[in-house]
Nucleic acid binder design. Structure first.
Lengths: 137, 137
DNA sequence: GCGGATTGCTTGCGTTTCGCAAGTAAAATG
DNA sequence: CATTTTACTTGCGAAACGCAAGCAATCCGC
């Protein structure tokens, strides 16, 4: 299973994004990098949804290939790899948050905490900025 | 090819959305309903990206099943079906717009008009509200 | 009112992707 | 030095995709 770049289908902006993260797993990986601050393969593998290791491997390669995630060996442990969001990846936070908000609004069994909905509705811009600046160091 | 509801993978809000529109086509169909004001199967079929008719059929069924789109026979022509966004579907506009903005920012060959980027950056809320209120009648 | 065109699909079928389980190499640990 | 941990890869059956063709119902022109 190889993370090859698909030909682009059109130069529609929506399409550009979907060709990178338009599937059931990629945004969940980004979610864990953003909201759970996961950094290692084994952590990402242990998501609630149970991603398979080959799928995770493929998605991380694709995210790296598209410059949303960086992949650096851990200097303290040569076995481990540290995955981090790049600026380009961090720029996707608004997308993640909007999807989460839509879901929280329309899913009767949502697991979204009320604090999220409240903070988002109170001041969306500040909520996002908070997450982003936390990620940048 | 049947639009069956997949079991939900977790009650993570992001996941709820992705289980509905986490693929390469669904959001493009919604894009055409929102930005091109398409209403008929044949119009949606003629997208730039060339969606296959069986895939389109499947996605419309799924969108209807999840209440994002309504499907009503055209009273003036019994052959034709009119597809419309519901409120739940319209609520996805911010998601579409955020993805488009991210793509416009990061795609060197983006086809996004400068007017979109400008309007979005100038006043996001007003830009979205404009689209939404146009859709509501 | 009859032939042809249009519309909204469905059906077959080969190809690609998914997803589970098992395996592996390299490095750390005891 | 044997065991464990980590980050993957490999095989393979199942599901989804995507192209082409087909089809029933309806409309349109004459």
């Amino acid at each position: 299973m190889i993370a090859k770049k698909a030909r682009r289908r059109s130069n529609c902006p929506l399409c550009f994004g979907l060709d990178i993260f338009g599937d059931k797993w990629t945004l969940l990986v980004l979610r864990d990098l953003v909201f759970q601050r996961k950094r290692h393969f084994r952590e990402l593998l242990a998501s609630d949804e149970g991603i398979a290791s080959n799928i995770l491997s493929d998605r991380l390669k694709r995210l790296e290939a598209h410059g949303l995630v960086s992949r650096i060996g851990d200097p303290d442990d040569a076995r481990q790899i540290v995955y981090r969001l790049t600026e380009k990846g961090i720029d996707l936070v608004p997308v993640l948050v909007e999807i989460a908000y839509w879901s929280a609004k329309h899913d009767p069994h949502t697991g979204a905490p009320k604090s999220f909905v409240k903070a988002f509705e109170r001041n969306r811009q500040a909520y996002i900025q908070d997450i982003v600046s936390n990620l940048k160091h």
